[in-house]
Write a protein that binds this DNA or RNA. Structure first.
Lengths: 128, 128
DNA sequence: TTCCATGCAAATCGTTTGCATAAAC
DNA sequence: GTTTATGCAAACGATTTGCATGGAA
């Protein structure tokens, strides 16, 4: 990350303070509401930079726009493939062992971000 | 799934015969090449139906279009977040226990599709 | 003869890009 | 003063939709 900018600071703060896996648009709205001017492209550009610098995670979705998550302790995600809601959950995966296995079988060096699983949430299951 | 159609049959066959996690566009090209006429919308519509009917899986990507995978034995995916390539790998996760934990912590009923992990593949790591 | 699926083109959604201006260092 | 970031609007890629037509039960 090169130059400081007010916008970038604001964006980081918003993601850090959001515990609900906001979308780029969510973040844009919140930053604007704080009477700080930003443009959508600045939000997208900075989210990209922050992901590259491993300050935040990007969660890609089966439905709807991508979501972002500030990196704290490792935790896992359960994503609803109907409505796109994201929940955190705890589970003791053996990350080191998994990492080693994946590396040897596929060559992929997995990022230690927790594991994302998919399914259908309660309210989606009932509202059909 | 309601009515049979030649196009749907072709699409299923193509996904079943592809072991490289094709995109909707890939599938469209292949079906057309078999001199069967299809439109892109038919491909997208049928892929949606097939996912809903749990005949195929949809893999959502951090980069590039979604990919599809015919459902066979359970296996896991390792996805490169730079180039979007998808690799299969084997690992003995305790799916039942994970499923139970996720359900009780989040309310999400996870689909038994294997687990997808993300990272950077060998060739992307070297080409920077 | 009703219902469902197709094909086309237009529309939509999320995101990226080019370019001129402004701010950081 | 050179580099890097911004804002705007336009472009883009992937996917969805409306509507008229064709095929299946």
């Amino acid at each position: 990350m090169k130059n400081y900018s007010r916008q970038r600071e604001e964006i980081i703060k918003v993601v850090k303070d959001s515990y609900n896996h906001p979308t780029a648009e969510d973040i844009y709205i919140i930053v604007k509401a704080k009477n700080s001017s930003v443009s959508r492209s600045t939000v997208y550009r900075n989210l990209g930079v922050l992901v590259d610098n491993k300050i935040i995670n990007k969660i890609s979705m089966q439905v709807g726009p991508d979501r972002y998550d500030y990196k704290r302790e490792i935790h896992n995600h359960a994503v609803c493939t109907k409505c796109g809601k994201v929940f955190d959950f705890e589970y003791h995966f053996n990350y080191d062992d998994i990492q080693k296995e994946v590396k040897s079988q596929t060559g992929i060096e997995i990022s230690n971000n927790g594991i994302a699983l998919e399914g259908i949430c309660d309210s989606c299951k009932n509202n059909i």
